[in-house]
Design a binder for these strands. Sequence first.
RNA 1: GGGAGUGUCGCAUAGUGGCUAUUGCAGCAGACUGUAAAUCUGUCACCUCACGGUAUCGCUGGUUCGAGUCCAGCCACUCCCA
Length: 376
Amino acid sequence: MHFELKHTDPQSKARAGLIHTDHGTIETPIFMPVGTQGTVKGVHQQELRDDVEAQIILGNTFHLYLRPGLEVLEGAGGLHQFIGWERPILTDSGGYQVYSLAKSRKITEEGVRFQSHHDGSYHFFSPERAIDIQRTIGADIIMAFDECTPYPCDYNYAKRSMHMTHRWLKRCISQMDATEPKYGYSQALFPIVQGSVYPDLRKESAEFIAAQGAVGNAIGGLSVGEPDEDMYSMTDLVCSILPADKPRYLMGVGTPVNILEGIALGVDMFDCVMPSRNARHGMLFTSEGTINIKNQKWSMDFSPLDTNGTAYVDQVYTKAYLHHLIKAKENLAIQIATIHNLAFYLALVKEARRRILDGTFRTWKDEQVKKLGRRI
RNA sequence: GGGAGUGUCGCAUAGUGGCUAUUGCAGCAGACUGUAAAUCUGUCACCUCACGGUAUCGCUGGUUCGAGUCCAGCCACUCCCA
């Protein structure tokens, strides 16, 4: 994998580039739909490719390891083969589950013991194990095993955790060096900056991560409940330290506004469950702002889902129809809403890229931020 | 005509003498950020922005310190026998 920086916006810190992988090229800035269990919930792979126009999707090491398990994944010839997705895949290492499944795990220097929510069995994730599993899954980009700290997070805890994540990173790198890809194409390891919302910790972490010389770098531990201002200031600080010639991935972010602001600060890659999860819960992100399609007020609104939408569902289906489908708990409601939201996110970053390249990003971004944050 | 049974906030339910009438569904809203989430939370008799106030268990009486609960009459519905 290698990154080709095409242009940096002189009026902001936004960048446009290309990430070349063995499964194809990704245009940045990019949003990556989350497909934890080998599926972006509610969307067919063909729709993901042709309607959403996803260029890369995520999988999750912890969840795929628990089910279907490594035997199946290896037997299938890797995750791409297993799920019928020929474009790039990125896997999260399980570091987020250290945060989200805090009730059922125990952290030590050696690694993390998780208790399965399926059968109560115990599973130990070390940095080495996380790499081995990701070798078997076979994603193009794999993440270092880290601890995603919560918010708020005590300074001393954040500091100790960050140093442990750094030590774990060294072990991940060693394990990468000691192993080979299993399916004939290369895999790139991205390390992750931590440090909670503390500038001195973020600076130290970013410098440590930058020094590893990885082909791409990630910012973790944000969008866990902290104010947006903290997310932006930490992102800004970290981006100023991470190398400019490598892609920067802001993990778990975010709302359309978060993403535009992140792009303006120099972030190249984003992922978030928000467009897919919220779609299932009736929340639509549109060019005019967010709407809750479950609200009674849409029952007689026969206008298209999103007049400015680029996906076919935006023009073919009306708000009243989607309102009806979701109230009736029809599966099609989830499919339409998810395709819409993801297509909206992908169109947003595509337009951002175009604006960066033609020099109109900054003013366009400021206009969009005003519109997209609205509730209609 | 005779007999039996049932009436609880839109629907369905719990409640047979004691504190604020239970729960589910539907309805109306809200939340969701590297997915244990097609989930969760609130609200859901009436008035009030709210604090708070006023009611209510088919109807009317009665017994009782106290009635959704016991008694009587009436009304409605269901079932059985003619």
